[in-house]
Design a protein around this nucleic acid. Sequence first.
DNA 1: CAATTGACTGAATAAGCATTCAATGGAATT
DNA 2: AATTCCATTGAATGCTTATTCAGTCAATTG
Lengths: 214, 214
Amino acid sequence: MGATAKKTDTQKKPRTAPPEVRRAQLIDATITCISKCGISGTTLTGVTKEAGLSLGLVNFHFKSKDALLTETLNTLAAEHRDLWMKAVQREDLSAADKLTAIIEAQFHPSICSRKKLAVWFAFFGEAGHRKSYRENSSQFDIERQEICAGLCRQIIAEGDYASPDADGISMTLEAMFDGFWLNMLMYPSKFTGKAAVKQVRIYLATLFPCHFNA
Amino acid sequence: MGATAKKTDTQKKPRTAPPEVRRAQLIDATITCISKCGISGTTLTGVTKEAGLSLGLVNFHFKSKDALLTETLNTLAAEHRDLWMKAVQREDLSAADKLTAIIEAQFHPSICSRKKLAVWFAFFGEAGHRKSYRENSSQFDIERQEICAGLCRQIIAEGDYASPDADGISMTLEAMFDGFWLNMLMYPSKFTGKAAVKQVRIYLATLFPCHFNA
DNA sequence: CAATTGACTGAATAAGCATTCAATGGAATT
DNA sequence: AATTCCATTGAATGCTTATTCAGTCAATTG
């Protein structure tokens, strides 16, 4: 339905666009395709049809199908990292606030829509044998887990809590992040992002009652 | 290596075997192939080569490749269910003991070898769009979660604990199960089954200190 | 022993796929 | 206007794959 931005000469969409735009379009279409058909069901014909572009464009803007898939995953991973990193870098937030921000980023609607979750797990399913799928995103995971462990250590020191096991707690947090993601994908009616955040906060409130409340 | 059961005439392996045996061989080979190459890299040529059988046998013993994959997943799901169900059905165990048994089953080496984890997540990755992959195993997941919730309710009643949210706890347990599985697959050197059991027990010990200890 | 049955084989088939590339389009530059 | 350059197109190519099936083999039955 008509989107006429400038009356002057915007009537027909241009037949050509800068590579950046095309790459973004193709990555978007790839996300849609993977979420609908899985990685094994995602074909270049399908992706380009979804994007409304012609078949040959993928190999023009990307080296190969594999490069398109890898860059799709990297895009999702970077988008996620940007969101929580923004909060972690703020100087005015307490350790508990930063940890809360990481949790909320994990379950933010823009990060874990059903569509994107399907893509994440499609990649996890292939990650076992595809090194390129692990490289980037696992680096981010490790980075986030180490930051979480550091924040936990700080909170433990602040509150003088009994449990000294910041590494164990951050491991468990990581597991809860991924586990709730999977359950949100498989049983969306039973598991929502809101409920996940709530449960993670209950876990933290049990451990650090002075810093968190359910 | 020699396995000579009966001296009389067992020298060469028979060229033919009952369908049950062949089906099991093919499912085994499928697990190996998926763990090595993912679902998209698993071909009938590869499976039959792995099994040391001829190409045509898959479509003889199974309706199709898809049927083979579905039955492979169902086999894994049933194997897992059998393990925890055996403990849950015992009349002599307390609720806490049964919950412990479920946790230990979840991370039992026979259930979550790296090989089998790779297969589980390969299926999760495709489950979004393949109804047949969800049907059986998700039924088992729901069943297990409801049993866990019941056990939690019982424990809460026994210990007169403050937290009344058995459903939330069982949701969190489920998430920890899946999340630790994923982390065991992705970072096997950092995450082991033993460590996972320990962390889950710590979680329960925090909630139910009279029933569990870390 | 002959006949029958069920398991097994692997070459042949047909469909689908990623990738290539010669040709086209059109915007920017000369 | 002519030229250059880059984005774009989609038919053609060559490879991989699931599935079929006509035939082989061996055990069991009559």
